[in-house]
Simulated scan of single mutants.
Amino acid sequence: MSVIKRIGSRGRMPGNSSKFKPGILDVNVAKISPEIEAELRKVHQVFNELGQEFTTKERKKILRKGAEILRDEIRTQAPVSERVHYRYSTPKLVKNIRAPKGKGVRVASYEPGNLSRSIKVLNYKRSKDLFVGPKKAKRNPQGNFAGRRADGYYAHWVEYGVPSRGIPATPFVRPAVAAAKGAVKDAVVQEARKAVDQLLKKRGIK
């Protein structure tokens, strides 16, 4: 019988910073299934009973493979445009009034597949968990986004739509989570048990 199955879910887990707020579409891999969090708690307890700290680094290592599975599924389901899209910096004539269409300056172009390429495994320093979601080009949000360069700043508009502007919702994150949920859970459970087995082997415990 696996050690994980024999150990109860006691003890406190390292928590996220109270000030930490993930993005609108960031999916917390550990929260996809109650079984994932339960398994992590069991690993935490095993580590505690053997006098080994269950660090955030170790927790994220266990979540990594599941996060990559979810990332790939979201990328697959992300809609791909058939043409290049552009973003403009439109000056204001007066406060709150934009200049007419065509007066703006083109500041960025987005090649087909930009949204899919923007989906990453997000490792926030202030969180104990891994997230999967669109990565934004915060440092340099201008220029051509093609190849490995991507900017998913508009992903939530695609997922939920913008009714006031006539933009319909095209969900791709939620369907992907539903489709990959089982595979993500299985991957995390496997990695969790591997972590325990490695610790037991290191301590000479069979």
Results as ranks from 00 to 15, higher is better:
residue 139 R to Q: 15
residue 181 K to V: 02
residue 157 W to D: 11
residue 181 K to S: 10
residue 132 V to N: 04
residue 90 T to G: 02
residue 134 P to C: 08
residue 191 E to N: 12
residue 93 L to I: 12
residue 89 S to A: 15
residue 153 Y to G: 09
residue 136 K to V: 15
residue 148 R to F: 05
residue 192 A to I: 03
residue 150 A to I: 05
residue 133 G to K: 01
residue 95 K to L: 10
residue 82 E to Q: 15
residue 109 S to R: 13
residue 84 V to C: 07
residue 187 A to W: 01
residue 106 R to E: 13
residue 125 K to H: 14
residue 140 N to D: 13
residue 90 T to W: 01
residue 105 V to M: 13
residue 96 N to Q: 08
residue 145 F to I: 05
residue 159 E to I: 04
residue 141 P to E: 05
residue 184 V to I: 00
residue 111 E to F: 13
residue 98 R to P: 01
residue 146 A to M: 12
residue 159 E to D: 11
residue 164 S to L: 11
residue 146 A to P: 03
residue 168 P to N: 08
residue 175 P to F: 01
residue 86 Y to Q: 13
residue 158 V to D: 08
residue 192 A to C: 06
residue 97 I to N: 00
residue 129 D to T: 00
residue 169 A to K: 13
residue 89 S to F: 11
residue 97 I to H: 01
residue 194 K to N: 12
residue 127 S to W: 10
residue 116 S to T: 04
residue 173 V to D: 06
residue 150 A to G: 10
residue 141 P to D: 04
residue 164 S to W: 06
residue 148 R to A: 14
residue 190 Q to Y: 14
residue 174 R to A: 08
residue 127 S to M: 09
residue 119 I to C: 03
residue 189 V to W: 07
residue 131 F to H: 07
residue 115 L to R: 01
residue 181 K to Q: 06
residue 157 W to V: 10
residue 169 A to S: 12
residue 193 R to K: 14
residue 182 G to P: 00
residue 195 A to I: 09
residue 163 P to N: 11
residue 91 P to S: 03
residue 107 V to P: 04
residue 194 K to H: 12
residue 181 K to L: 06
residue 130 L to Q: 04
residue 160 Y to A: 11
residue 195 A to P: 08
residue 108 A to G: 09
residue 98 R to D: 10
residue 161 G to E: 07
residue 171 P to M: 06
residue 87 R to Y: 08
residue 143 G to C: 11
residue 111 E to Y: 14
residue 187 A to R: 01
residue 138 K to V: 14
residue 182 G to R: 10
residue 176 A to F: 00
residue 86 Y to K: 15
residue 179 A to F: 00
residue 132 V to K: 05
residue 173 V to F: 02
residue 157 W to T: 11
residue 122 L to T: 07
